[in-house]
Nucleic acid binder design. Sequence first.
DNA 1: TTGAAAGCGCTAACAA
DNA 2: TTGTTAGCGCTTTCAA
Lengths: 366, 366
Amino acid sequence: MSDAQSEAVRRRVNHKVATAYDVASLAGVSQSAVSRTFTAGASVSNRTRERVLEAAKALNYRPNQVARSLSTSRSGVIGVAVSHLDNQFYPDFLERLSDALDLMGYRILLFVTKGSQDFEPVLGELLRYGVDALILASSSLSSDLGEQCRAAGVPVVMFNNTDPRSQVASVAGANETGGRAIADFLLAAGHQRFGFVAGVEGTSTSGEREAGFTQALREAGLDAPARQVGDYSFEGAWRASIALLGQDARPDAIFCANDHMALATLQAAQSQFGLTPGQDLSIIGFDNVTIGAWPCFQLTTYSQPMPLMVDRTVTQIWRLLDGKDDGGRHEEVSGELIVRASCRIPSTGLVQRPDGTMIWRAPDRP
Amino acid sequence: MSDAQSEAVRRRVNHKVATAYDVASLAGVSQSAVSRTFTAGASVSNRTRERVLEAAKALNYRPNQVARSLSTSRSGVIGVAVSHLDNQFYPDFLERLSDALDLMGYRILLFVTKGSQDFEPVLGELLRYGVDALILASSSLSSDLGEQCRAAGVPVVMFNNTDPRSQVASVAGANETGGRAIADFLLAAGHQRFGFVAGVEGTSTSGEREAGFTQALREAGLDAPARQVGDYSFEGAWRASIALLGQDARPDAIFCANDHMALATLQAAQSQFGLTPGQDLSIIGFDNVTIGAWPCFQLTTYSQPMPLMVDRTVTQIWRLLDGKDDGGRHEEVSGELIVRASCRIPSTGLVQRPDGTMIWRAPDRP
DNA sequence: TTGAAAGCGCTAACAA
DNA sequence: TTGTTAGCGCTTTCAA
């Protein structure tokens, strides 16, 4: 046994992890040969590769990612900032995103942010962590942040949140369209008095949904809806709903800026006012989270198709990573108005899809 | 302006990130001096430090974590494997864990696993990612995995899951105690026929809860409960519940191995059998997830106090990182039986806590 | 307290 | 196709 070999064995015994050098000497090749066999698209002879692989297996060797990152300045890690983890929309997002990134060999460095707290310093750090890209899925996160990263040359995509004036790429649902559809739907069902529960003020998501909703009501000759802020939280929406429903002329239809808040409204209406959603009033959300379809909720909602949105998000990321920094930055993924029992049902416009779900489409206007 | 200075400026302009060398030359000191000013507990004169900090600020310099990791073989990153993200227990866990780790300057590298899929290869990779430690919060994850990492010298803690025979540290709730308490509680309420909805077979969490439950029933002279497997999923529990409730002698009390499944049982009972939980039958879960307390559920449950559990988990991690690999490995965090409307209420043993929540304590036995 | 210099483990020119 | 060599940006001895 050569010196090199015994050195390699010694390392193993000492619990030290084998390096490419150990493998090289055991295989009787250069360290570069080892590097090459573990680098996709390298140039190694089969014979060399096999010897290396054999030695690697014997030593339980695997390339050290940190060292690799230092050399290549690519880490295979993508930073993901997310908040509101109690809103099922986001865990669902994380799960699907993880899947999608996994497929491409990427990992997630997770940052759970609290609302719009001072996240920016953390993010400064983050950039030095060598993440290859950033996904900002905190609806209450400013785009300045993203702008900063973009300037630093790190691809950034905002998820479920946009700043149309910024250069930061984004993927979002059809917020304004959805808001309009919801108004049309409620009007078609014969509703008269409307309420709106907003998310965090200033977020594009809530703002656009409200804009579409209000605009469509205006076009129908109606006033803007009664309005309360729910801050995207269950408690906030609970309070907002109680305020709305406690009014003299109580709304007979309430649109909440997302499902998470709509679930609060639904329960507040039931337990605090004895109202039956779908009969006494209509409640509608946005997102189509899984639990909204639970029997006890049967929440009507405008969907944000998560698989598609995640798909678009990662596609944008790959593009940016490839340096294709061109066009198509602010992507909008359209959804559908999914009809369930929490709303009074219009007599027209209902369509049943093959999977049994009911959707509503506005009748063509003249 | 010196050559070194103009070089530094050039880098800035070219969008290249400043390195410690750039800072050093701008500050007129050695690169080591820069390193020291950014290393906690270093030895630098105030004068040097100030000059360095000034230069660093001018160049917007921050130490490169990757390079630092390569030198120190510590990354400041902790790998977290989690599954069942649709069970609110886990997003909640992630959120709190993130907070706790943040406080100590650690970040989370997230792995979302699917049940007990072939996660092991991924984890092999993971170790080469330079994570300083690993937290395994996948209730359906074998401990072999953890054992492997431990052997590789990486601290591992299993969360909400144990293998008593293994050396892998763990933090879990009072599963057996909780199971017993639940049996005692249901017996005290006068129940006769019991059902149990299990999680994934073979997981310690489900197994221990069932063992405690069944054991306590046996001690009361009763048979083991009717039993169905819910696999920790909503759909699985839904089917399991329908099977249980469709029996000839339908159970009048069902214990589900966690809240997530109990929520399915509750709704199945209501919507498929027209039963009113708390009157026609009692349904009880385990975890005390936030949504279980929602008005429409009012789920009785045995709690797993998340803040405490997370606290214990990170404490274990710090210990292991400090090389204190001694004792106290399998930690159990006790909870309380939280009484809500989904169960028939016993006439004795109820205690109201200051915050208004009702808990139940078994009367002392003679 | 400081600077010089030797790595950390790998990738990527460059020569052979 | 190979091996040699020079970094990647930092930490950490070791002298001074």
